[in-house]
Amino acid sequence: QKRWRGYYVRKYIHNYYALKKYLEAVSVNNAFVRNELQEYVETKENEEKMKDLEKKEKEMKYQARKMHYLLSTEQIAGIYNSPFRKSPDPMELLLRNSKPLSHRRKQVKSPFAYELYDWPTCKKPPAFVAALPLPPIGRQKPQGPFRDTAEVLWQRYKPLEPTLRVAESINSPLEKAREGIKREEWRNPIHDNEFLPFSSYNKNENEKYEPSLCKSGKYVREAYGTKHFREVYPKKWIADKDFRTVAPSIFLFEKFGKSYSRAGQIV
Rank of each mutant, 00 (worst) to 15 (best):
G225H: 03
K106L: 14
K55R: 10
L252Y: 03
L196G: 03
T245S: 08
Q75G: 00
L164P: 02
P90W: 07
Q1H: 07
K203G: 05
S27I: 09
I79T: 08
K49A: 13
H14Y: 13
E184G: 00
P211D: 00
S216P: 07
K44T: 02
A64R: 01
E151H: 03
I250T: 04
K66E: 11
A177I: 02
S259F: 03
P136T: 09
I250S: 12
L213F: 07
K215L: 14
N46Q: 11
V220F: 03
F229Q: 10
E185K: 06
L153A: 06
G264C: 08
K11F: 00
C122L: 15
I266E: 14
L213M: 11
V33R: 12
Y201A: 10
K215D: 15
P159K: 15
S199E: 14
N81P: 08
A25V: 07
K227E: 13
R221T: 11
G225M: 05
V267I: 14
K11L: 10
Y40L: 15
Y8C: 08
K49M: 09
D192A: 02
E231P: 02
R3E: 07
G225E: 03
M91Q: 06
Q155M: 12
L70W: 01
Y16M: 04
L160Y: 09
E207T: 15
N30I: 14
L53T: 06
R85N: 11
L95Q: 09
P135V: 02
G78M: 05
A131D: 05
K176A: 03
Y62W: 08
P135F: 04
Y40R: 15
L116K: 10
F146S: 03
K241W: 13
K236V: 12
G217I: 08
